[in-house]
Simulated assay, not measured.
Amino acid sequence: MANPTTLYSNITQVSVDSNKYTETVRMALLILLVLCFCFFLYFLTIILYVYFTTAHIRENTRYVLFVHMLINDTLYLILGLTLLVAVSYKVYLPVSLCYVLVTIGSISFIVTPYNLAVMALERYVAICYPLRHAELCTPQRSHAAIAVIWAVGLIPNIADFIVLSSSVETKYFSLNVICSWARLLKAPVQNTMRSITLILSFTLVGLIIVYTYIRIMLVARKLGSGKSSAFTAGKTVMLHAFQLLLCMTAFSSHFTETYLKDYFTFLAIANFLLFMCFPRFLSPFIYGIRDEVFRKYIKKLHSSAITSG
């Protein structure tokens, strides 16, 4: 007969080794996330430096919207990474603070596709109504559009707060919880409202991008030049569509975490990296490096750094 003490010791050792392995993998994934985020911040800093030190870029509606999208994505990534670390290491936060962080993250998540829609509309006006572009697409109107985007993004969260407040007692907001969206679901209608908001938002943005792309490419065909500004604008709108598609992959994380969370220990971290971070990490490359103006200034900055070094 096996010695019970030895058997218990072996089981304990396996458990310890498993915990060490789990912690090692978790730390590796989090370090990878942080490194990618630092790389993203490096390009973001360069783009913001060029933007704020170049007057004619700050007066261009296209670049105002682009920089707003980058700043918004940075806010989302900071909040998402903070909450992910808190959940991974079971850090308890007051419900009131948790709700504020989750709400800001939720708004910044939905603001990105709205911003893509407005950027597509700006290209549409520039190509289809060039004589009115300077009148319609001004920095002031861009800032107004950004304010409207945030207001629209806030509306579903106000409705969610009303539903949550009516479903719980006041003392609920003073409790401490492991902060996640699931912890704040106290009524089935909250999840329904969230799903409807996301589906309607992405559908509307998708229709806007498809419509603007078709109209722009019709103008490009009339011009008949593959190097015309209309063809360039069409490619830009297609990039908006590509990024919107990447943002929509975030839907899959809900299903994978619902049905596969018991089989994959690090599913939440992997989902956050692939479906939340990856589309946003691409923004500086898709728009910043591809754009001739930013590319020229980035090359100039690197040349100056090499020369001074």
Rank of each mutant, 00 (worst) to 15 (best):
F109P: 04
E23Q: 15
C36T: 01
V177N: 04
L301D: 02
H56R: 15
K90D: 06
A145T: 03
S18K: 13
S165A: 13
C137S: 08
I216H: 02
M27T: 15
A86E: 03
Y99R: 02
R141Q: 05
I107F: 09
Y76H: 09
V237P: 02
R132W: 13
V205Q: 06
W181D: 02
A55D: 05
L65D: 03
S225R: 10
A145C: 06
A55Q: 10
F294R: 08
L198V: 14
R141I: 01
Q140M: 08
I162M: 14
L70C: 04
P113L: 05
H56E: 09
T53K: 05
R280H: 11
M238N: 09
V125P: 03
S304T: 13
L244N: 04
V91Q: 05
C277T: 08
F173I: 02
Q13G: 00
K90P: 01
H302T: 10
P4D: 06
P156L: 05
C179G: 01
L131C: 06
I269T: 08
M1G: 11
S106E: 00
E135M: 14
P4V: 08
T170E: 06
I208L: 09
M276S: 14
L116C: 00
P139T: 02
D262T: 12
L32G: 07
L7W: 10
L239I: 12
M248N: 00
L48Q: 05
V219K: 13
I149L: 11
M276N: 10
S96F: 10
R132Y: 12
C179T: 01
L154Y: 08
S252P: 00
V163A: 03
K299C: 14
L131P: 02
A159S: 04
V25R: 07
E23H: 15
D160N: 11
I209T: 05
F272T: 02
V237W: 02
I214A: 12
K300A: 15
L175P: 03
V50S: 03
K261S: 11
N191G: 14
I78M: 12
T22I: 12
K186H: 08
I214C: 14
P4H: 08
Y76N: 07
N115G: 07
L282K: 12
I149T: 10
P279W: 14
M248S: 07
K235I: 01
T103R: 05
S304E: 15
T192H: 13
E135V: 15
S308G: 00
L84P: 01
L41M: 04
L274Q: 05
F173M: 03
Y213E: 10
K261V: 06
L84W: 04
L65N: 00
I208E: 01
S166C: 09
V85C: 01
S15Y: 14
F285S: 06
A145P: 02
I269F: 11
L84Q: 04
T24P: 00
E135N: 11
S283P: 00
I289Q: 14
M27K: 15
V64D: 01
A28M: 15
S166I: 08
L164H: 02
T82V: 04
Q140I: 06
N72E: 06
T61Q: 05
N271R: 12
V125K: 05
K227D: 07
F43M: 14
L273F: 14
L79P: 03
T232S: 12
N115T: 11
L93E: 00
I269Y: 07
